[in-house]
């Protein structure tokens, strides 16, 4: 029998998700919705990284938006101020957050629990203040204008369908990469750290090194997302990279569930959908404002921690699994039932 689950990643899930992503733009009617779906892809990249950090390394980061901001601003400054090609600045947008994570990781390797939460929180605020105050480079609170578009052999990615596919190509790459990581030796080591750091370190797992690696990976993912965000919009401002941003990413991961990569993806999609829905509702009903969105996020965080500590995705997956297995057995049982099953689907 083929070994499943932990040992191997399933390509079926990836294939199904890819098809969904490919056909989604044809189901969305307005360009605003396409933009939202593009944002969902950018958020997915950050959330998957944060999910790895929280669910697999058992670390919390309340400053993930800072890495996202470092990625966005480094590419903005390099391309708009120094005229570098966006593809070259992508490397810097990944390397800069990674370097910061490396330095920060060394500081925080000795920190745990609440102390770690404090350190990442402090880091996020320091970066946000620097983005606002370092006006010579970042142009301050009013924002950085004039970021060029990404070009690829003469083709320009502009906001819309083409950018949607570009973002999701990166997002799928990140998802596949993350699935590979968690199904590898590193992934097993990480899971053991999450369950018991003491036990895994006594089994010879270098816990510090693995935690550091996953922290750097999560920063790199956030950097890629920042790069995509910067070149999508003509301008960026520090407001997108503050505490609210970090908490938004946290909400996505907590809602979806941090113990699987798909949980983070699911959370990012769901939060984007909720946010779009509330905004659409807000344009009709004056009572519903952007504050209402925050009330909703707060409520989601509390309810999920109390009732679904594992997150929504594992809960749904557990419900769906018997159904899928049932369908699978029916298929094997004979052609007639299989045809019936297809009709139902």
């Amino acid at each position: 029998m083929k070994r499943k689950g932990i040992q191997q990643m399933s390509w079926k899930g990836i294939a199904a998700f890819t098809v969904l992503i490919l056909i989604l733009p044809f189901l969305l009617s307005t360009s605003l919705m396409i933009t939202k779906a593009t944002f969902a892809g950018i958020y997915t990249i950050v959330a998957v990284g944060l999910g790895l950090l929280m669910g697999f390394a058992g670390q919390i980061s309340l400053g993930q938006a800072a890495f996202y901001g470092v990625g966005a601003y480094s590419t903005a400054i390099l391309t708009a101020t120094f005229g570098l090609s966006p593809w070259l600045s992508l490397l810097i947008a990944i390397a800069a957050p990674a370097l910061i994570a490396y330095i920060l990781g060394h500081t925080m390797a000795r920190l745990h629990g609440y102390y770690l939460a404090m350190a990442t929180l402090a880091f996020g605020i320091v970066i946000h203040v620097l983005l606002v105050e370092w006006k010579g480079f970042t142009k301050g609170a009013s924002g950085f204008y004039g970021i060029p578009k990404i070009e690829f052999f003469g083709f320009t990615f502009t906001q819309g369908i083409s950018y949607y596919y570009l973002v999701w190509a990166f997002a799928l790459l990140v998802i596949v990469l993350s699935l590979n990581i968690i199904h590898s030796r590193i992934g097993r080591a990480l899971r053991s750290i999450h369950d018991s750091e003491v036990a895994s370190s006594s089994m010879g797992v270098d816990t510090g090194r693995y935690k550091m690696q996953v922290f750097i990976i999560s920063a790199m993912f956030a950097g890629i997302a920042g790069w995509l965000f910067a070149h999508m919009s003509y301008s960026i401002s520090p407001g997108s990279f503050g505490l609210d941003g970090s908490i938004l990413f946290l909400t996505m991961v907590v809602l979806g569930g941090s113990t699987s990569v798909w949980g983070a993806v699911f959370g990012a999609l769901l939060i984007t959908a909720i946010s779009s829905f509330v905004q659409a509702l807000g344009s009709k009903i004056s009572f519903i404002t952007s504050d209402f969105e925050h009330v909703l996020y707060g409520l989601i965080l509390m309810l999920v921690v109390i009732f679904l500590p594992q997150g929504l995705f594992p809960a749904i997956a557990a419900k769906l699994k018997p159904l899928l297995e049932y369908a699978g057995r029916k298929k094997k049982a004979g052609n007639i039932t299989a045809v019936k099953g297809d009709q139902r689907a």
Binding site: G58, I60, F292, H294, V295, G298, L299, M302, V305, I306
Partner: peptide, 30 residues
């Protein structure tokens, strides 16, 4: 809220109280 989540780990408790904070702040701004 807090009593319902007794026994949760530090990570979940931090998230829980962040949720409560956002909730209260949102209500206050309304």
């Amino acid at each position: 809220i807090v009593r319902k989540a007794k026994g949760a780990d530090a990570l979940s408790l931090i998230i829980l109280t962040i949720g409560a904070a956002i909730f209260i702040r949102g209500i206050a701004s309304m």
